[in-house]
């Protein structure tokens, strides 16, 4: 069954490598790959097992001789989390700094990545994984500014998962000490649940959106490390209160850092470059 809409079709996501002379497309059946690491399936087994154990025993104490209750206590996302940790280990071993960019559609993820590559390409080697439901448009934009890129089309999927990123990295083959940028599917809800193995998660919000986004979509702001407030050049024309947004976001996540910038005018973008270089040097 399809992993994304339950339509009964096999679940295919597409990994498209734009770096080969002939654009290669590979189709991935997610179910073939999520069985990795079964030997670790009990990592979390006993963490909360005492909570309701008596209730369980009574509920299931029927006289059927063969019926058995098995306490699983298994994290539903453990397979994704295991794949994410594999990615994280790969990045660490190669001293790669990796970013997971999340936002609603149209807040400027691709434009920011594009500009960053264009302006820092001489100092830092970038590799990009683009996630979109359909098309290779974003990957073409990244390729045009000179960074190796693979596009993952999730089909009906609303988020990237760690296994897709794992396949993407294998296609990309990023070099040591580089930065891998993963641009997630534009969606402020679903991607928050899926760890991809990134070093830092960056949420982008633009001033043309509502300033209460952080409390409307708390999961995303809670799981991010940095919040970029984009399109600040439009502030005179919109009713967006930056201080209010920050206040809301800090209620949800008091560790969150902020950078205000405009990709279009370049205003404030040096703060972003400084952050990026600082994070990379910490590795």
């Amino acid at each position: 069954m399809c992993d994304t809409c339950g339509c009964g079709q096999p679940d295919n996501f597409k990994v498209i490598n734009l770096n080969d002379s002939e654009t290669k497309q590979s189709y991935e059946h997610s179910h073939e790959h999520i069985h990795d690491g079964t030997s670790h399936s009990h990592t979390h087994t006993h963490s909360h097992s005492e909570d309701h154990s008596h209730e369980q025993a009574h509920q299931h104490n029927h006289e059927h001789g063969t019926q058995r209750v098995i306490q699983m206590q298994t994290d539903v996302l453990q397979k994704n989390n295991l794949s994410a940790e594999r990615n994280r280990g790969y990045f660490e071993a190669k001293k790669i700094f990796s970013l997971n960019f999340v936002s609603s559609p149209g807040s400027g993820k691709t434009s920011l990545i594009e500009k960053t590559i264009k302006e820092l390409n001489n100092e830092i080697k970038f590799f990009v994984i683009e996630g979109d439901q359909q098309t290779i448009n974003d990957a073409k934009r990244i390729k045009a500014v000179g960074a190796p890129v693979v596009q993952i089309n999730t089909g009906n999927g609303c988020h990237l998962d760690a296994e897709m990123v794992n396949r993407g990295i294998k296609e990309l083959n990023p070099s040591d000490k580089s930065i891998v940028v993963i641009e997630n599917v534009g969606n402020l809800i679903c991607p928050s649940l899926f760890d991809l193995g990134e070093s830092k998660r960056v949420v982008i919000i633009s001033v043309t959106e509502g300033d209460d986004k952080p409390i409307k979509y708390p999961n995303m702001f809670q799981s991010s490390h940095l919040c970029i407030i984009n399109k600040t050049d439009l502030l005179p024309y919109v009713d967006f209160n930056i201080e209010q947004t920050k206040k809301y976001a800090l209620q949800v996540n008091h560790h969150l850092e902020f950078i205000e910038l405009s990709v279009k005018t370049g205003q404030g973008i040096d703060h972003w470059y400084d952050w990026l270089k600082k994070q990379k040097n910490i590795l």
Partner: peptide, 22 residues
């Protein structure tokens, strides 16, 4: 929308555990 992914993860994990226990 991600709930179907979650549902399929649940089903896979339970199937594996059930098979392991014959």
């Amino acid at each position: 929308m991600h709930e179907i992914s979650i549902a399929l993860n649940i089903i896979d994990l339970i199937k594996e555990e059930a098979e392991k226990n014959s």
